[in-house]
């Protein structure tokens, strides 16, 4: 299973690398001007060295249609209230973005993983997580994504995003994660 923070961490590294390259290229402050001494003999002419081959590389950033693109530009997680599988108002913009992205990248298949906090029992939470993943699936289908491209699974309380045992962790762990399973660039 891809860790939800994997792509984000990689992006941060790319940005850092770009920043340090920029630092190297910046102009250095001018040093003190030495008094002109006796003219040195002119160096014999040399032809300028041949420029090295220029390789064209992808600019650091997100490949459109990649998992990273989806995670950053659409968003993979929506959150739920306690013991609820009703899509919250803050989930709909994320799911609309997911639907737009999935419409554009029509080869992509996803698996929606329903998750619950640890303040419930095992089997009830498998059922509740299934309700959550299905609620997301239904929404995406209502936005035109074929149901055949969407699998669902419930991890119940067994794959918490946040290992903490407090209200904040529980709120983060009540989620549905849309994971790309195939077709990404």
């Amino acid at each position: 299973m891809t860790h939800p923070f994997g792509p984000a961490t990689r992006l941060a590294l790319v940005v850092l690398a770009a920043a340090s390259l920029a630092a190297c290229a910046s102009t250095k402050p001018a040093g003190p001007v030495a008094p002109r001494g006796p003219a040195e003999p002119e160096a014999p002419y040399r032809p300028p060295s041949q420029p090295g081959p220029v390789t064209q590389e992808q600019a650091p950033g997100v490949t459109p249609g990649s998992v990273q693109d989806f995670v950053i530009n659409a968003g993979e997680l929506v959150y739920f209230d306690l013991d609820s599988y009703t899509l919250r108002a803050d989930a709909k913009p994320v799911l609309d973005a997911q639907a737009n992205w999935l419409r554009r990248w029509s080869a992509v298949r996803v698996r929606i993983e329903g998750n619950c906090d640890e303040r419930g029992t095992r089997e009830y939470n498998f059922a509740l997580g299934a309700r959550r993943s299905n609620a997301v699936k239904e929404y995406l289908v209502s936005r035109g994504i074929p149901a055949s491209r969407i699998d669902t699974i419930s991890y119940g309380k067994e794959r918490p995003l946040d290992p903490g045992s407090n209200e904040e962790a529980w709120a983060r762990n009540r989620n549905a994660r849309t994971a790309i399973t195939e077709g990404a660039r």
Binding site: E123, F126, A127, A130, R131, S133, N134, A135, E138
Partner: peptide, 9 residues
């Protein structure tokens, strides 16, 4: 056992 279909177990 329980089977879930379309969110309903």
């Amino acid at each position: 056992f329980s089977v879930e279909k379309a969110g309903n177990s």
